[in-house]
Simulated assay, not measured.
Amino acid sequence: MYVAVKGGERAIDNAHAWLAEERRGDPSVAELSVAQIREQLALAVNRVMAEGSLYDPDLAALAIKQARGDLIEAIFLIRAYRTTLPRLGASEPVDTGAMACDRRISATFKDAPGGQVLGPTFDYTHRLLDFMLAAGAEIAEAPQAEPRTAPMPRITDFLDRDGLIQPEAPSDEVPPDLTRAPLDFPANRALRLQSLARGDEGFVLGMAYSTQRGYGRNHPFVGELRVGCVAVEMEIPELGFAVEIGEVVLTECETVNQFAGSKTEPPQFTRGYGLAFGHSERKAISMALVDRALRWEELGEDDMGAPAQDAEFVLSHADNIQASGFLEHIKLPHYVDFQSELELVRRIRAEAAEAGTREAAE
C-alpha cells in the first residue's frame, strides 16, 4: 500500500523560507558578514577548505554562513561548487621545505636548527572561558613578529643523513586524482593520503587515537609540525618554465615512529605524513598517525587486525559527505518499503497467533 504525499512542493518551499529566516536569526542583531567569518572563524574556514578540496577562504566562509555553521553541510556546498569549475591545468608539487613558517615545532629535538616557533596556538592556554570576549573588550596588541622567509631544515633530514629513518623513494609516477575518479582498492599511499586529507576530521582523529591506545602498531613522536605559506607554481607551456601563481597556507606534519625491523628492513625509524589546507594541526597529526598505521604491509609488519590498519575500512568510512548522505537519506520518504515490512510483520504475527491457537486446542 502506498501512502500518497500531497502538497510536497509547497511544503518544501515553505521549509526553505523558514530555513532562511532561521539562518538570519534575530533581525535586531547585526548580520554576520562573510569577511567576519573568514577572519574570525578561520579554523572553521580551514576545515571546510581542507575537506571540501578547494582552497578559497571567501567561498568557504560563505558556505559556513549559508549552512548556519554546519561544517559538514558547508563542505558539501564547497564540493558541489567545485564540480562546476573548469580545470585549467595542474600546479607543480609545492615545496613545503621552503615554507615561510608562522609556526614550527618539534617534539624530538629541543634545539632544532631554525628554532622552535610557537606561533598562534591553543597549546598553552588554560581552557577557561574568557568573558572579556563577550564584553567586546579589545585584545592587547601583540608584538609584531618578524616574518620568517628563510627555509627551515626538516627534522627528518638529520635522521635521514645518518640512515636512522626509512628513506622516501622518489617517484615520477603521476598520482591518482580522487576528485576525478572514485576511490578504488588496493589504494596506494598517494591515494590514501588524498582520502585522509578530505576525510572527516573527527573520524580521522578517532582512528589516530585508536592507534595510540594499542589498536595498531603506532608509537609516534611529532618529528615536525609546521604551518605557513608556500608558493604555488604552474608551468606555462608558452614560456617553457614554471611561474608563481599564488600562495596557500598549509599545515604539514611528519611523525617519527619506532620500527623494530623486518626480514627486509633494518631497525630504524619510519614516517607518517599529513598535509592539510590552512592551520589544521589536529587534522595533519591525525593523518600522519593513520598514514603510518596503513603502511604496515609495505613495511613487512604483521597485521594486528586493528581498524586503523584496514585501508578499506578507514578510507571507505572517512568521507563525511558520503557518510552523511547515506545516513540522512533515511529521513526521506520510505513509505512503500515500510508498508511492505509492516504487512510482513503483521502476517508473521497472525501466523504465529494462529499456530498458538491450534496448539492450545490440541
Rank of each mutant, 00 (worst) to 15 (best):
A140W: 09
F131W: 09
I155H: 03
A134N: 03
M152Q: 15
G136A: 05
G136Y: 13
P153M: 11
R148Q: 14
T156A: 09
A150V: 15
G136F: 01
F158R: 12
P153A: 12
M152V: 11
I139C: 10
L133E: 10
R154P: 01
L159E: 07
P151C: 08
A135Y: 04
R148S: 09
P151T: 06
L133I: 12
G136H: 06
F131M: 07
E138Q: 06
I155G: 03
E138P: 01
R127T: 06
G136Q: 09
Q144F: 03
A134V: 01
M152F: 13
D157G: 07
E138M: 00
T149Q: 10
R127K: 03
A150E: 15
P143W: 06
P147D: 03
M132K: 01
A134C: 05
R154L: 05
E146P: 03
P143N: 07
R127S: 04
E146D: 14
A145C: 09
L133Y: 07
D157I: 02
A135T: 03
E141S: 07
L129H: 04
A134E: 02
L129I: 13
D160M: 04
A150K: 15
L133C: 03
L133A: 08
R154V: 04
L129Q: 05
F131N: 01
A142T: 13
A142S: 12
L129M: 10
A135C: 02
T149F: 09
D160W: 00
L129A: 10
P153T: 02
A150W: 08
A142E: 02
M152N: 08
P153S: 15
R154Y: 06
R154C: 10
P147V: 01
A137C: 09
M152W: 08
P151D: 09
P153C: 11
A137G: 06
A137W: 09
E138V: 14
P153F: 04
A150G: 12
M132N: 14
R148N: 03
M152R: 14
A134W: 05
G136D: 08
P151M: 11
D160K: 03
L133H: 03
R127E: 01
L129Y: 02
I139Q: 13
D130H: 02
L133K: 08
L129R: 07
L129V: 11
R148T: 06
P143S: 14
P147H: 01
R154K: 11
A145H: 13
Q144C: 12
